[in-house]
Design a protein around this nucleic acid. Structure first.
Lengths: 337, 337
DNA sequence: CTGACGGGTGTTATCGCTAACATCATCGGT
DNA sequence: ACCGATGATGTTAGCGATAACACCCGTCAG
C-alpha cells in the first residue's frame, strides 16, 4: 500500500502516459505554439492524472534562472515596513514569484552585504532592498551591477531604481490642510533624521509653510515611537502659541495626543494634529486621527514591476517611481479657537 | 573588458584550477572526511580565487532536497504574528535555510491549501503554518503526511507538531498577580474566541480565579483592536466593583486604559490593568503597562528545530513544544483602593 | 511533378551537481 | 614479503528539465 520511496512523477512519466515525448510535454507546459490542440489536451490530462508538478530545480539548472526574488529588510515590526513587506509578498506571489526574505538586525553595510550574498547564493532573479536610511543606501554600492535591484524607501538622490511613497506631497498636503483651517503655522514632530522618509516629510512640511508665508518653527526631532512623540508633545503642550502639529507618523501623533490631553488642551478644539501612515488603530484614537495614507500595495506593485522589467530586459533602467499618498480626514483637525 | 556572457564558475572550473577532480571539490564543500588537508586548502583557495558559489539548483536536482522552508502566514500586521515571522526568518537564515513566505488574505481552508501547493511546487524541505484559529487548523488536514509540517499558535488539541506560547501559564500568572495584590476578582477582555491564543488566555485566567476561589465574571469578548478594548473598557469603567482587568493583548489594554482615564478612574490607583504581548510601546503607556511577554525568538527557534528534526528523520514526530512567557511588571498594578 | 517551406514531433546534448563505484597507494600484521 | 584494510582520489552515471537540431509529413508555388 504505502510506497514511501516512490518518487514524484517526472516529465517522462507524463510523456509515457500521454504517448508523446517528454519534449512535447515541455512544450505544453511552456505554451509553445507548435503543438496540436488534441495533443495538448492529452498531455494536460496526463499531467492531471499523475499529479505531476514540474521540478523547478531542474528548470533553473538548465535555464540559469529562478523564479525567486530576494528581499532584504530590517528585522523590525514598525508598521510601515511590515505592511510594505507583506504587500510585496502578496504581489510577487500573484505574479508567480516566490519571495525569500533576508532579515537584517541593523541596517549597516556589512549586514546588508551579507544578506545580499545569501540571496545571490540562491541565484535569485532579483533583489529588493528596503533601505530607509543612509547607511542602508550606502551598502548598495557593493551590489554587483548585473544583479537586478530595486530600492524601496531609499535615497531619492541616488541613481538606483527606486520606488517610494511621495513623502513630500503627503507632508505638504497635511500641512496645507492645517494652514487652510486657519492656523498661523504648523509645528512638526519628525522621525529620525537619517531616515529618508522622515527627511522627505520635513521637506514637504517646510515647503508648504513657505508657500503660505507662514513662519517655520524648529523641527522637533524624535524617533518613530509613541514615547518620543509624547515627550515632544509635552513641550508643545506647554506653549500656548502651538495650535497645529503635524507628526511624522501615527505613533508620534498618538504620543502628542496624549500629552495634549494630559495638559488639558483639547484636540481638535485647542490644538489640531495630523499624523502619517494611517495605522489600523488611527481611526480609533481619541479623537479619530486625520492622517496621510500611503498606498503600500501600490508601492509593492510598482516595485515588482520595476524589478521584473530589469530581469527581463537585462538593462538596469535608471528608473524611479513615486506613489502619491492620500489625506484621510477624520476628527483631529479644526480651526484655531 | 566586459564579458557579460561569461557564465559563473562551476565546480569543474574550481577543480581545474586546484588540479583535482570536481568530485574532490564536492567533497571539500560537503565536509567529507577523506580529503587530505593539503588538498582541502588548495581547493578552498581555488574557490576563493574564482569567487565560486555552488549552484543550489543543481544540488537540489540531484539530492531531491532544497534548503528552503515555506511559511504560510496571514497577511496581517498584528504585532504577535509579525514578530514571530520576523524571528523565524532570522533563525532560519542563521541555520542556512532560506524562507519563502506565502501570504494569505484570509485563513480559510482554500487559501491555505493554495499557499501550501505553491510551496510544494517549490519543493520546500518543510512548511510552517501560523494557524491561530480553527479554520486555519482545519485546513491542515489537506497537507500530505509526508511533508514535514509544524504548526505555530495552532490547535493544542490536534496531533500535528505544534509550537506555541503557553497562553495558559501567562494568563494564570497575570491573573494571580492581580489577585495577590488583593483584588477580589479579575475581569477579562478577551481576543476573538475562535483564536487559540485567546481561548488559552481565557482558560488560564479562569483557572487562576478558581484556584483562588474568586468569583468568575463574564468574559468581555472583543477582537484584538484598541477600539474594541475601548468599548469593553467603557462598560467596565462604569462598574464600581471592577478593580482589576486582564486584557488579552496590549492593544486591548490600551483601549481599557483610555476608557478608564476618560471616566476618571485612575490606573493603577482605582483600577489595575494587565496586558499581553509586551508591544514596544507598552512601556510608554500611561501608566507603563504590566504585561506578559512571550519569547518570540524562542518560539521561532523551537519551530525551526522541530521542523528540521522532521526533515532529517523523515518521521513526523508527534511533538509539541510550549514556551512559557514571563510577566513584566511595570506600573499598572496596585492593591485595590 | 518537384522542391522549398513550415507545422508538429522526436532525439540528443547539456546544465552543475552528488552518489556509487573504481582505482591506486600506503600500511600494519603475520 | 604477502595480503586485506583503509585513505585519498578519479570516473561514470544519473537527477529532470530546456535547447538545438533532425525528421517526417503535408501544402503550395513554379
Amino acid at each position: 500500500m504505502d510506497q514511501k520511496t516512490t518518487r514524484d512523477p517526472a516529465m517522462t512519466d507524463v510523456a509515457r502516459l500521454a504517448g508523446v515525448s517528454h519534449q512535447t510535454v515541455s512544450r505544453v507546459l511552456n505554451d509553445h505554439p507548435n503543438v496540436r490542440e488534441q495533443t495538448r489536451l492529452r498531455v494536460r490530462a496526463a499531467i492531471k492524472e499523475l499529479g505531476y508538478r514540474p521540478n523547478r530545480a531542474a528548470r533553473a539548472l538548465v535555464t540559469g534562472k529562478t523564479q525567486l526574488i530576494g528581499v532584504v529588510a530590517q528585522n523590525s515590526t514598525l508598521y510601515g515596513p511590515a505592511s510594505l513587506l507583506s504587500a510585496f509578498e502578496e504581489a510577487a506571489g500573484e505574479a508567480g514569484f516566490a519571495v525569500s526574505v533576508g532579515r537584517v538586525k541593523v541596517l549597516d553595510r556589512e549586514s546588508i552585504a551579507a544578506a545580499v550574498e545569501r540571496h545571490r547564493d540562491q541565484r535569485v532573479a532579483g533583489i529588493v532592498v528596503i533601505a530607509p536610511n543612509s547607511s542602508a543606501a550606502d551598502a548598495l554600492a557593493d551590489v554587483p551591477a548585473e544583479l537586478p535591484l530595486v530600492t524601496v524607501d531609499g535615497d531619492p538622490d541616488r541613481s538606483t531604481p527606486l520606488v517610494t511613497v511621495d513623502q513630500g506631497v503627503g507632508a505638504y498636503d497635511a500641512t496645507t490642510l492645517l494652514l487652510q483651517a486657519g492656523h498661523e503655522t504648523v509645528w512638526h514632530v519628525s522621525g529620525p533624521t537619517d531616515w529618508f522618509d522622515a527627511a522627505g516629510r520635513v521637506h514637504g512640511w517646510r515647503r508648504a509653510l513657505e508657500m503660505h508665508n507662514a513662519e517655520v518653527p524648529p523641527v522637533m526631532a524624535a524617533d518613530w515611537s509613541a514615547a518620543s512623540g509624547y515627550k515632544a508633545g509635552q513641550m508643545l503642550a506647554r506653549m500656548p502659541e502651538v495650535t497645529a502639529v503635524f507628526a511624522s507618523n501615527d505613533h508620534l501623533a498618538l504620543g502628542v495626543l496624549r500629552a495634549m490631553h494630559e495638559r488639558g488642551r483639547r484636540v481638535p478644539h485647542d490644538v489640531s494634529v495630523v499624523g502619517f501612515d494611517d495605522v489600523p488603530e488611527a481611526a480609533y484614537f481619541i479623537p479619530p486621527l486625520t492622517t496621510v495614507r500611503p498606498d503600500f500595495a501600490a508601492v509593492a506593485r510598482e516595485t515588482l514591476g520595476l524589478l521584473l522589467e530589469q530581469v527581463s530586459e537585462g538593462e538596469s533602467a535608471q528608473s524611479r517611481r513615486t506613489i502619491a499618498p492620500v489625506l484621510v480626514q477624520r476628527e483631529s483637525v479644526a480651526p484655531p479657537a
